[in-house]
Design a protein around this nucleic acid. Structure first.
Length: 877
RNA sequence: GGGCAAUUAGCUCAGUUGGUUCAGAGCACUUGGUUUACACCCAAGGGGUCGGGGGUUCGAAUCCCUCAUUGCCCACCA
């Protein structure tokens, strides 16, 4: 047996993953057991695994594997999201690199390219998840653009339209000039950017006077249709009813009055550009202003841009400020920090734009979803997110669900005639035709008279149905699967998509099943690097998950990720954690090697130390089971792992195995061996959710197992009563053992050298663990004495005193006196504080009886200890 | 501008209704160790006035006030 034995994760992990797959352990069918369901937050179909996914899916796998062991019918549904804007952007970029413009293609051709891309890159991420050990039911893998999921989306759209909840409106929306589509409010990220505040002079019509207006966007003057002042602003009273001339454009626009204008900001005058600002639009509507749109869809200027036509808005900003300066229309510029809306996907600066879009009315839909969370019917973990959720739900605005994209679910609205208002909404063109005929009274309409809206739906308009559509619960609301698996149990996801996705799933759940989609939502943190930066591809600070797995093994990474991942708090990822993880796996591997190396002898009797050690560990294990239950119920994954980690490493390896370990090359008795094997099996069960591979590997190597006996489908250890007395006695024994080791170290007494230990038993403690102490400290004689031993080093545990005789002359009397004096000093101080507390009448009167008893015990212990310390000192002097 | 959360050992974090030595864990660190599973190991050890200040209480890391710092979310101030 070489010392070089190390666990090889690579081969083992592949072997067992294949084994699990072959035997269909991940697959779930409806049966009599209680279901435990998780639906995966579907990653982008063409995405690749990043550290956030690793954390997320590790947690889900731990939960699902534990549920499986606990006897639930565990079902983890995997899948991917078509991610319309992200995927379309990738396809457009790919085509561009080949010299093809999207605008040159028909919708059909473009979609062919998109599907090709999807088939080529799609599902890579799911393969990566398998490396991590994810025990998803791969037979259920779903995609948001699968036929039945797509049909569900369309059905829901039509239904909501018929309920009057979806409407078409000409509104100011967030326009992404790069992706050439609108975005929902949630897809706009506001960033602080340093910019300028330009002070522009507008000439008053028929006067030499100028009016100075501050703006951050001088290029938009070409779309100005008014200047607004506050009616209460006395500085401008004389200008009421006058008109000004827009520089460069030389258009004449009115001065209007509205209290909306903040007199304190800038010059107290506001230029109004209704086409390019949400507020200006509102102001324009109120005052009946003209709307001049100066931009093309790609944010270059159109014909209203005059000589700037065709140039980008930011180029124009620079150029126009120079022209204005030359004209004397630029009073000054100031540095100004302002918030700029950017596209979540393309990072392009959002342009507010007026256009015809589809919206979903959210106000009424949100109500049951809000109540569900406030009533804790849907639990958010950690709870701090309830506030955020409530705030969003109470102020929810209508959801812009249309996107000017092709990749996605095409909106089932069919236009006829020329007007934008002439349309019908239906699940198929055929139905649409019937509807259109009825609506127009024109029986001669044919399908080609109908044109389907070219826009696609927001991706989230399909993923909000995910927990239902993966079980086909929209098309067949009464099928046995949806009735069995829904509502799902836990949802594990990132807080960033609380509004995008989680809230909307709750909304959809109540609207379509009158029931929540999941019981609990566990919100993980963001994975950050040591410098607290978010791990991202663009920063290059994110390790490749597959490289990590290759280096540390999936088990190691899983442990590494969970070692520090409090719910809702960010995870500071440090590769050292993975090292720690793989060290733990290696430790388990070696414990098993030790056990495997033992030879069993049926004829020898069980040593006392082994017997007591096993009894103790069994209680300790039961205690850990209770702790685990508590931690899991609160989604404290790192705590659950740490309980397991310490139980295995410290209690099992460092204590139990050392207690039962036979002497070198000596055999072990059969009773102890059987007990250790049983314990090992139970250990593996609680380890399995965290380290599925190594645990299955060892489980299968203990003996031949049939497929029905695989660890992955074993049953969670049974609960038994806990012997607290035994556990406490062991704590004392452990202190004694530490005391002996300390003296051995101080005095350089090698472990091989047996010693005698004398005990002055003031506690009248039962000698339960004496044989254990003898074995672990190499004590040849353990004797009880009635008075202090001369010529020995001593230490105290509780009020007992322990003596180790030392070769004459090797005791440093001075040092011993100093050490004991210090301990005496401390204990006397401690006693004093306890006495002070006990002599405080108000304490005795107010504190609960329990606390007073504890203080009295402390007092008694301290007094006894002081007595032994004094006796020791006396014997040394 | 509004709201929420956090601040405990070098690092990452526990500390549930104020009261068992409650000031903890893991890692890191120091020292010692070829004990025949594991140096990805074993053992022993050092380390914090619980962000600052004030208050309530017999008793505060824990409750209240205040200040400071950090993070997150929301919001149309040109």
């Amino acid at each position: 047996m070489g010392s070089a034995a190390k666990y090889n994760a690579q081969t083992t992990e592949n072997k067992w993953y294949n084994y699990w797959m072959e035997h269909g352990y991940f697959h779930s069918e409806v049966d009599d057991r209680e279901s435990y369901t998780i639906v995966i937050p579907p990653p982008n179909v063409t995405g690749v695994l990043h550290m956030g996914h690793m954390l997320n899916n590790t947690i889900q796998d731990v939960l699902i594997r534990r549920a499986r062991l606990k006897g639930y019918n565990a079902c983890w549904v995997p899948g991917t999201d078509h991610a319309s804007i992200a995927t379309e952007a990738k396809v457009v970029a790919k085509l561009k690199s080949e010299g093809i413009e999207k605008s040159d293609l028909t919708r059909e051709t473009f979609l062919e390219h998109a599907w090709e891309w999807t088939h080529k890159h799609g599902g890579i991420i799911l393969e990566q998840l398998k490396k991590l050990g994810a025990s998803c039911d791969w037979e259920r893998t779903a995609f948001t653009m699968d036929d039945n999921l797509s049909a569900s989306v369309i059905k829901v759209f039509v239904d909501l339209y018929n309920k009057g909840l979806i409407y078409r409106g000409y509104r100011m929306v967030n326009w992404d000039p790069e992706a050439l589509t609108t975005l929902s409010d949630e897809e706009v990220i506001y960033e602080e950017r340093q910019g300028n505040l330009y002070y522009l002079n507008y000439k008053i019509e028929g006067s030499q006077e100028v009016l100075t207006v501050a703006t951050t966007r001088p290029e938009t003057i070409l779309g100005d249709t008014a200047i607004c002042i506050n009616p209460n602003d006395e500085r401008f009273t004389h200008l009421k009813g006058k008109k000004v001339i827009v520089p460069i454009a030389n258009r004449i626009i009115p001065i209007i009055e509205d209290e909306y204008v903040d007199m304190e900001f800038g010059t107290g005058c506001l230029k109004v550009t209704p086409a390019h600002d949400m507020n200006d639009k509102a102001l324009g509507d109120k005052h009946g202003l003209e709307v001049i749109d100066i931009f093309n869809d790609d944010a270059t200027l159109n014909s209203f841009g005059m000589h700037y036509q065709g140039k980008d808005r930011f180029v124009v900003r620079k150029e126009i400020s120079k022209e204005l300066e030359a004209l004397g229309a630029l009073e000054k510029t100031e540095q100004h920090l302002n918030k700029v809306g950017t596209s979540e996907r393309t990072k392009a600066v959002i342009e507010p734009k007026l256009s015809d879009q589809w919206f979903l009315k959210m106000e009424d839909l949100a109500k049951p979803a809000l109540e569900a969370v406030l009533d804790k019917d849907v639990k958010l973990v950690p709870e701090k997110f309830i506030n955020t959720y409530r705030h969003w739900m109470e102020n929810v605005r209508d959801w812009n669900i249309s996107r000017q994209l092709w990749w996605g679910h095409q909106i089932p609205a069919y236009f006829y005639g020329d007007g934008k208002e002439d349309f019908v909404v239906a699940e198929s063109k055929e139905e649409a035709l019937t509807l259109a005929k009825a609506k127009t009274g024109n029986a001669t309409l044919i399908e080609t008279d109908l044109t389907q809206d070219p826009d696609a739906l927001d991706t989230w308009f399909s993923s909000w149905l995910w927990p239902m559509t993966v079980f086909n619960g929209i098309l067949e609301p009464d099928n046995k699967e949806i009735n069995y698996y829904y509502p799902t149990n836990d949802l594990v996801t990132a807080p960033e998509i609380l509004f995008f996705w989680v809230a909307r799933m709750v909304v959809a759940g109540y609207e379509y099943r009158k029931e929540k989609p999941f019981n609990n939502v566990y919100l993980t943190g963001i994975v950050r690097d040591k410098q607290r930066r978010k791990m991202s591809k663009s920063l290059g600070n994110s390790p490749d998950p597959l490289d990590l797995i290759a280096q540390y093994g999936a088990d190691g990474i899983r442990v590494g990720m969970l070692l520090s991942s409090p719910a809702g708090n960010d995870l500071m990822f440090d590769e050292d954690l993975c090292k720690q993880g793989s060290a733990f796996v290696n430790k388990i591997f070696n414990a098993d090697r030790l056990i495997k190396g033992w030879e069993v002898d049926e004829d020898i009797e069980q040593p006392e130390a082994a017997k007591i050690g096993i009894a103790w560990y069994q209680s300790k294990f039961q205690k850990a089971l209770l702790e685990l239950e508590d931690h899991y119920s609160k989604y404290r994954m790192s705590d659950a792992l740490m309980t397991t980690y310490k139980l295995i490493w410290d209690d099992f390896c460092s204590w139990l195995l050392e207690m039962v370990k036979p002497a070198y090359q000596a055999p072990i008795d059969a009773v102890t061996y059987a007990a250790v094997i049983k314990i090992l099996g139970d250990n593996l069960k609680i380890l399995h959710p965290f380290v599925p591979f190594i645990s299955e590997e060892i489980w299968q190597s203990i003996k031949d197992r049939t497929p029905e006996e695989a660890l992955i489908i074993a049953s969670w250890p049974e609960s038994h009563t806990i012997d607290e007395v035994l556990i406490n006695d062991f704590e004392v024994a452990a202190d004694v053992i530490s005391g002996v080791r300390k003296i051995r170290k101080e005095k350089n007494i090698a472990f091989k050298e047996a010693i005698t230990l004398s005990v002055l038993n003031n506690d009248k403690a039962k000698p339960t663990f004496d044989t254990v102490i003898k074995q672990l400290c190499n004590v040849s004689d353990l004797e009880y004495v009635s008075e202090s031993v001369d010529g020995a080093l001593s230490f105290r545990v509780k009020s007992n005193e322990y003596f180790i005789p030392i070769v004459a002359g090797t005791i440093d009397v001075e040092a011993e006196i100093k050490k004991i004096s210090e301990e005496l000093n401390y204990t006397e101080g401690f006693l004093k504080s306890v006495q002070k507390k006990l002599s405080n009448e108000r304490f005795v009167a107010n504190a609960p009886e329990k606390v007073i008893v504890i203080e009295r015990n402390k007092q008694a212990d301290a007094e006894a200890k002081i007595a032994t310390l004094k006796a020791s000192l006396a014997s040394l002097k």
